[in-house]
Write a protein that binds this DNA or RNA. Sequence first.
DNA 1: CCGATGGAACTGACCGGTCAGTATCGCACG
DNA 2: CGTGCGATACTGACCGGTCAGTTCCATCGG
Lengths: 200, 200
Amino acid sequence: MTRGDKRDQIMQAAETLFTSRRFHEITLDEVAQAAHVGKGTIYRYFKDKDDLFFQTATKGSDDLYAVIRASVPEGVSFEDKLLAVCEQVSAFYRKRREILRMIQDQEGRMPRCGGEMRRRWSERRENVLSAVASVFRDGVEAGQVRSDIAPEVLAGFLLGALRARVRELASHPGGMPPISQVVDFVIHGAVSRGAKESIS
Amino acid sequence: MTRGDKRDQIMQAAETLFTSRRFHEITLDEVAQAAHVGKGTIYRYFKDKDDLFFQTATKGSDDLYAVIRASVPEGVSFEDKLLAVCEQVSAFYRKRREILRMIQDQEGRMPRCGGEMRRRWSERRENVLSAVASVFRDGVEAGQVRSDIAPEVLAGFLLGALRARVRELASHPGGMPPISQVVDFVIHGAVSRGAKESIS
DNA sequence: CCGATGGAACTGACCGGTCAGTATCGCACG
DNA sequence: CGTGCGATACTGACCGGTCAGTTCCATCGG
């Protein structure tokens, strides 16, 4: 068993636990047990509980970023790219429920750990955002996406809408065609085809 | 000083504190001090720390619901209603930053307090959602909003997008025309006018 | 042999929750 | 009016449990 393994075990257990209950309800004994690791070992890899939490969340964010980057197909239409991204994000989100939340919640919280940690937080967030934004940027270049709203802003909208949808589906399982609906909404908006001309 | 006063003081202090740092970082001594109240008094009005937290969040959610209900103007166009709602939600969100987050995070967390609290949580969330959805519902009836996506789903999208935008503005102050952009996006989507026909 | 690990035992700070005591109020009665 | 009394609201020192973080030693693999 190599060096990195223990670390990964711990982080994986931590992610599962931290995303299932609130921070203060998780004991490190629990984490150690779930990771099949001695409690002391945790402190070999992480400074303290907060550090473990933060690194876990950061890792998740990096993973999402990597997934998005790797999954945007080249040389296909805007809609297909959009669909691909939505599917990746949505799948990722379903598998690792709370990570996206952690990412989006960069803002408040985390006051302790000096601006440093705060900075790294928002850096991660911006990475993800700009990865999604690149799809829109391509779309703008191809003349398919409106240029009067910044791609990053559109990316924010998409992520927000996607998140709402995934959550909805989580609490009402069964209900269906989720992703295509999001894509369609992002592309066309809420207005019905017929009424397009009569509005603003 | 009448009966409700202390209770309100406590809840107000609690909201401020709970939304500025993480739950486990807030001590009840702190809450008591901020509310200018003896610690014991908190327990006259709230069963325990969790109860205080929950009731605080619930209250915020109810306030938002009331604000939305009260602010949707009658007998104006769909876009105007949409704009009004966006403005209310956005203003509310700015003033009481984290409440919307609490509402939207009804899902995970809160495992302790038996399904009961969970139920009340999602009830609140649905209230807000359906208040926003009513705008879309009217739009559908008037033939202006597409009927192939449920109004509640559209409401979720809107709230998600709005939230992303408000957050963005919070971390990068200065940047501007926020709400109208959201409205425009929700109505028309991301695709540029010219490209409308060529897509799916 | 040596460094890494498991994990049990320990410690001490911290904080949720309690409760005995105090202040305040409403009211009845002289 | 005042003052005595019961009830209710409130206070904050205190208690006891919990848990982050540390220490220690047996164990293991190389």
